[in-house]
């Protein structure tokens, strides 16, 4: 069980997140939605200790999450990666096993098998010797999904995994999400899209600096909640 209690984040006296509380059970797929600047990425980064939180606690399976980062797989936004970096698909996926292998050691045979299986699952094993920058956006995202799978984590966090991907990749990613759910993994996904993709989630968290609503899609995505989260921006978008 992931438990977030009273999480607040501020950047130089500007409040980015205020008093976030939520619980996510094993085997649950939760989508986080909200307008640009709502603090979606900040929330997951604060949970992982990537940005300092002003207050709050984050526990996973009863212990502080910061002490069990090996249990976490995090897929960052595409914009955080330099796609011109000289590295092959295989080595990107193998990064999942870096901490497991330990210092001064090469990844074990088991690690190599896990990476191979993960790349095969997303249909990228055949392209394992390609430079990451030679792939399409969807293929690149699948490599990062494989990296998350190969980590064998219990909590998986994805920051806008559907940005710039093709339909095939989107289907593969949702299939993988459902498989991970079946394995009782806990999944948090930041989703930019407010369309049909939201049907895949067990619960939606609507965010704008604070939690506007959490629950099934039908309960959360009401006109009133959307107005509270997006204000007039959504009307303009709809028009």
């Amino acid at each position: 069980m992931l438990q977030v209690q009273g999480l607040s984040v501020s950047y130089r006296d500007v409040l980015a997140l205020q008093n976030i509380n939520c619980e996510v059970a094993p085997g649950e797929l939760v989508g986080i939605v909200g307008p640009n600047g709502a603090g979606k990425s900040t929330m997951v980064k604060a949970m992982l200790g990537l940005v300092n939180s002003a207050a709050g606690s984050i526990q996973f399976c009863g212990l502080p999450l910061s002490r069990q980062l090996l249990q976490v797989a995090y897929v960052p936004q595409r914009s955080q990666i330099d796609w011109d970096y000289p590295i092959t698909v295989w080595h990107v996926a193998m990064m999942a096993r870096t901490v497991h292998a330990g210092l001064f050691r090469r990844p074990s045979r088991q690690s190599r098998e896990l990476v191979q299986a993960a790349l095969e699952r997303v249909g990228m094993y055949e392209l394992r010797d390609r430079r990451i920058g030679e792939l399409s956006g969807g293929q690149q995202q699948r490599v990062f999904i494989a990296r998350a799978l190969a980590k064998q984590a219990n909590l998986l966090i994805f920051d806008e995994p559907f940005t710039g991907v093709d339909r095939k990749t989107e289907d593969i990613i949702f299939d993988v999400f459902h498989e991970l759910k079946a394995q009782a993994k806990t999944l948090l996904v930041i989703n930019h899209d407010l369309g049909e993709t939201l049907n895949h989630y067990d619960r939606i968290m609507l965010l704008n600096k604070q939690v506007i609503a959490v629950g099934p899609k039908e309960v959360v995505m009401t006109a009133q909640n959307l107005q509270a989260a997006y204000g007039d921006a959504l009307k303009f978008a709809a028009a």
Partner: peptide, 22 residues
Amino acid sequence: FSFYKELLFYTFDPVGAQAGGM
């Protein structure tokens, strides 16, 4: 030579490396 795989991870994806506890 000793820290090659860690440095590869850190230089390619510093945020991911930090999130992984490095």
